[in-house]
Simulated assay, not measured.
Amino acid sequence: MTDTPTILFEDGEALVIDKPAGLPVERPRRGGPSLESHQEALKLGFQRAPVPVHRLDTDTSGCLLLARNPKALVRFSRAFEERLVAKRYLGILAGVPQQSEGTIELSLTKQSSAERGWRMIAARKGKPAITHWRMLGEIDGHALIEFRPETGRTHQIRIHALAGLGLPLLGDPVYGSGQSDRAKGAPRTMLHAAALEVPRQGKLSISAIAPLPADFASLGFDDG
């Protein structure tokens, strides 16, 4: 089992952890380690184990908010639904976009097939999705991008990178395959949830920053 995730923020109703890449939030059907494997260690003296408020893909590292009681879970979930949560992601593209910044508005829907399983696609009749982005740097034909999603659709940044910018995230095994040989040039999908801020009535906001992972730094990038 991997080491217990690093705690970035802690108070009586919330934890924010730095989820390692490769650790699933939900227990896989095939078994194996998941966030649930660390429940006891993350209780930190509380009787209840903290519960994830949102999801990060298994490959995605960085800030994950956990609620320490049911009432907090309801409040935090509502903050996500009402788009009150500020989220900052860093991603490395398998290429360099033509522009340096912009906003992507592409609705998303799920598509399933027996041959390819399920994936998300851009579709007019899908659920609205909005992502703001800007390029922070370029090294060896790869671009470091800051993504600030307004919505939180499944695979939103991965699809918006591919369909909106015309370039997949480096290492993406689903949306990178067949799009570019360079998409296979990393051991995982290069996406990191770098910062999270959740407003609270009558209390200071929950605020956390997850340091840049070693695999980003190994490609020569810093946090811009």
Score class of each variant (00 low, 15 high):
Gly32Met: 02
Met190Tyr: 05
Arg68Ser: 14
Ile157Pro: 04
Ser37Phe: 05
Pro149Met: 08
Val96Pro: 02
Arg55Asn: 14
Thr6Pro: 09
Met1Pro: 15
Ile209Leu: 09
Arg119Trp: 04
Ser177Gln: 15
Gly45Arg: 07
Leu65Thr: 09
Leu219Glu: 05
Glu138Cys: 13
Arg83Ser: 07
Leu196Ala: 12
Glu105Phe: 02
His160Asp: 02
Arg55His: 13
Gln179Gly: 07
Asp140His: 14
Leu144Gln: 04
Arg158Tyr: 09
Thr103Asn: 03
Arg48Ala: 15
Glu26Pro: 01
Ala67Glu: 02
Leu44Thr: 12
Glu115Trp: 06
Thr189Trp: 01
Pro28Tyr: 08
Glu26Val: 11
His54Glu: 11
Gly141Cys: 10
Arg88Gly: 05
Arg83Met: 01
Leu42Asp: 09
Leu56Asn: 05
Ala183Cys: 06
Lys203Pro: 01
Ile206Ser: 05
Phe46Lys: 14
Thr154Ala: 12
Gly164Cys: 12
Arg153Phe: 09
Trp118Pro: 03
Lys203His: 13
Asp3Ala: 15
Leu56His: 10
Ala122Met: 01
Pro97Gly: 08
Ala161Cys: 14
Tyr89Met: 02
Val74His: 10
His142Val: 00
Leu106Ala: 08
Pro28Asn: 05
Ile159His: 03
Ser100Cys: 04
Ala79Ser: 02
Ser218Gly: 00
Leu169Pro: 11
Gly185Arg: 09
Thr189Leu: 12
Gly22Val: 12
Gln201Val: 09
Arg68Tyr: 04
Ala208Trp: 00
Lys127Leu: 06
Phe46Trp: 14
Pro52His: 13
Phe9Leu: 04
Pro20Val: 08
Asp18Cys: 03
Lys203Val: 00
Arg29Ser: 13
Ser77Ile: 00
Gly176Tyr: 06
Gly202Arg: 13
Thr189Pro: 05
Gln111Ile: 14
Gly137His: 06
Thr6Ile: 11
Gly32Glu: 06
Lys87Tyr: 08
Phe46Ala: 15
Asp3Thr: 14
Phe80Gly: 00
Gly166Ile: 13
Pro173Leu: 13
Arg88Leu: 01
Leu15Phe: 10
Gly22Tyr: 13
Ile17Glu: 12
Glu36Cys: 09
Glu197Arg: 15
Phe147Cys: 05
Pro187Trp: 13
